[in-house]
C-alpha cells in the first residue's frame, strides 16, 4: 500500500459519499446517470468475486463491502425511493449502456491473465469501469445546469483513477517492477475520458462560473 493508492481509494470513497449525500440530503438525483451507477454495481460485483475466497487485508475487505453496499444503495435510491425516483430524468440519460457490456466481456475473453472465471470477470470489470462513466458524461453534456455536487462527484471519481496511475508508476519503479498491462491500460483509458471534463471543471472553477460542458 502506498500513499497514492490510499489517496486514490479515499478519493473514490469520498466521491461516492458526496453522491449519496447529494441524493439523501436533496432527495434528488437530477443530473445523475442511473446507467453509470448500474454499471458500477456490475463493476464491483465482478471485481470483488474473491471477497469471500481470498483475504488480502482487513482494509481491502472492508472497502470492497463499502463499495458494493454504497453502489447498491445509490441504484436503490434512484430506482425505488418514492421521492428520489421522480427526480430521475430518464430522457436525458440516453446512453445505451448495455452496449458496453458485450464488447468488454468479449475483450476480457480475449485479453486476460489466466483463463479462469474469476480472472476473466475481474478483467471484464476493469474494462467496464474504464467506460462506465460515459453515460454520466453524456448526460452532463446534455443537461443545462450541472449542480456543484454532481460536478464534484465526477471530479473526485476521475481524480481517484488519476491517483491510481501515480500508484502504478510508484509500484513499478519503486516496488515490484512488474508490468500490469491490463489494469494500466484500462485505467489510462478511464482517466483520459475525464480529461476534457477536468479541463472545463477547472476552467469553471477558476472563472467562478457555473460548470458548462460544450455539447
Amino acid at each position: 500500500m502506498n500513499l497514492f493508492r490510499l489517496a486514490g481509494d479515499m478519493t473514490h470513497l469520498f466521491s461516492i459519499i458526496v453522491l449519496l449525500l447529494k441524493i439523501h440530503a436533496t432527495k434528488s438525483c437530477s443530473g445523475i446517470s442511473l446507467k453509470t451507477q448500474e454499471l458500477y454495481v456490475i463493476v464491483f460485483l465482478t471485481r470483488y468475486l474473491d471477497l469471500f475466497t481470498r483475504f488480502v487485508s482487513l482494509y481491502n475487505t472492508v472497502m470492497k463491502i463499502v463499495f458494493i453496499g454504497t453502489s447498491f444503495a445509490i441504484v436503490w435510491y434512484m430506482r425505488y425511493h418514492k421521492v428520489v425516483k421522480q427526480t430521475y430524468n430518464k430522457d436525458e440519460d440516453t446512453f445505451k449502456h448495455y452496449f458496453l457490456l458485450l464488447p468488454c466481456f468479449v475483450l476480457a475473453l480475449l485479453l486476460h491473465n489466466e483463463f479462469t472465471t474469476m480472472d476473466v470477470l475481474w478483467t471484464f470489470s476493469l474494462y467496464l469501469e474504464a467506460v462506465a462513466i460515459l453515460p454520466q458524461l453524456v448526460l452532463l453534456q446534455q443537461s443545462r445546469n450541472i449542480d456543484n455536487l454532481t460536478g464534484n462527484y465526477v471530479f473526485f471519481l476521475g481524480a481517484y483513477r488519476g491517483l491510481y496511475v501515480l500508484n502504478w508508476i510508484y509500484r513499478y519503479f519503486l516496488q515490484d517492477h512488474r508490468a500490469r498491462w491490463i489494469p494500466w491500460i484500462s485505467g489510462l483509458v478511464q482517466t483520459a475520458l475525464y480529461a476534457d471534463f477536468f479541463y472545463y471543471y477547472i476552467l469553471s472553477w477558476k472563472k467562478h462560473e457555473k460548470l458548462k460542458l460544450p455539447a
Binding site: D9, V56, S57, N60, M63, N113, W122, Y164, D176, R178
Partner: peptide, 10 residues
C-alpha cells in the same frame, strides 16, 4: 501467485 498480487488493489 503472480497474478493474485495484481488483485490486491481495489
Amino acid at each position: 501467485a503472480e497474478e493474485h498480487a495484481a488483485k490486491d488493489e481495489l
